[in-house]
């Protein structure tokens, strides 16, 4: 197993997963999807200006694009009175299209950023760029060291603002009535989502970022509703997906990121099926023992 690749993927999955929990709970899964598509033109433009990947201007450019997307969606919904789903759909397809066009225009100029990289990343090549100190002390691939500060940043922001995140996520009206600026938290989350997308983009590509953002949190949320537990379970499922997905990709000689997302999805469906089976068992038992009140309740809940 290649430790460099696996650890890079792990941190990508952690960063995406933690933010994904909040996106999912705030009913903004598709906004996350939109942002992950629309940072592309920002990345390309910043790349053209700075000339390298994963540089500071690239981060700024892409983070700006993320915010522009959110603002554009809000503008179309509120000012132009377009229905929300259409606003999201138009915004991200357009920005992504501009990104692909920019790449096509400048590929002739020999920029080292191709469609394949945009679409499914090149995590397999992270080892080409290693950090080596003093000529022999190997510290791992640069991509991994790019992910670690982001992970630290997210952890700090989430841990220190935990109460705030909790309250603005589950009861924004109450939060607003307490004088908390809900929109400030919203934009903080959106900025972090853009940041994570840009950082992860290189490793796994624009679209699979969404997979890491939504699938592990959704799996976790299936079996638990407590915020802390959902985050912990998300990290567990993310780890499982990365490790098994890596194996799968090596075995079939396919895209590593694609393999990881496939496994994440399979885990979701396995957990879902197990849950259904357990529910059926419980219902059957309660039928015999306590007169089936659980069945009744089950029906009412549905």
């Amino acid at each position: 197993m290649d430790i460099g690749i696996v650890f890079t993927a792990l941190f990508v999955a952690f960063n995406c997963g933690i933010l994904g929990v909040f996106l999912m709970l705030r009913k903004m899964a598709m906004v996350g999807d939109a942002i992950s598509h629309s940072v592309l033109p920002g990345i390309v433009i910043a790349y053209l200006i700075a000339g390298t990947r994963a540089s500071f201007p690239m981060l700024i450019g892409a983070a700006a694009m993320g915010l522009i997307t959110t603002v554009l969606i809000e503008f179309l919904t509120k000012k132009a009175r377009l229905q929300n789903d259409a606003s999201i759909g138009i915004s991200f397809t357009w920005l992504f299209a501009i990104g692909v066009i920019l790449i096509a225009v400048f590929t002739k100029g020999g920029i080292d950023l191709d469609q394949e990289c945009v679409l499914y990343g090149d995590i397999a090549y992270v080892n080409l760029d290693k950090i080596i100190v003093d000529g022999n002390l190997y510290l791992g691939p640069r991509a991994m060291w790019n992910q670690i500060p982001v992970f630290v940043l997210i952890s700090v922001v989430i841990l220190f603002g935990f109460r705030g995140w909790q309250i603005t996520t589950f009861n924004p009206d109450y939060a607003a009535s307490m004088g908390i600026s809900v929109s400030r938290w919203h934009y903080l989350l959106m900025s972090m989502v853009s940041l994570v997308t840009v950082m992860a983009f290189e490793a796994v590509g624009a679209i699979l970022v969404v997979g890491f953002m939504i699938i592990p949190p959704a799996t976790a949320y299936l079996i638990n509703s407590k915020l802390k537990m959902v985050i912990v379970l998300t990290l567990v499922f993310a780890t499982l997906s990365v490790l098994l997905g890596y194996r799968l990709a090596i075995y079939f000689n396919g895209s590593i990121a694609g393999g990881m997302i496939s496994v994440a999805g399979i885990i979701f469906f396995v957990i879902w099926c197990l849950q259904q089976m357990v529910k059926k068992l419980l219902v059957a038992r309660s039928d015999e023992n306590v007169g089936g009140w659980l069945v009744q309740e089950n029906k009412i809940i549905r």
């Binding site: 598709m30 999807d33 699979l208 997979g211 799968l248 694609g258």
Partner: peptide, 19 residues
């Protein structure tokens, strides 16, 4: 969430098969 989940899962599988 269901839409985003299915979207990224299927696309991930698609990319995997494509590669």
């Amino acid at each position: 969430t269901a839409i985003a989940l299915i979207l990224s899962f299927f696309f991930g599988v698609g990319i995997f098969l494509l590669t």
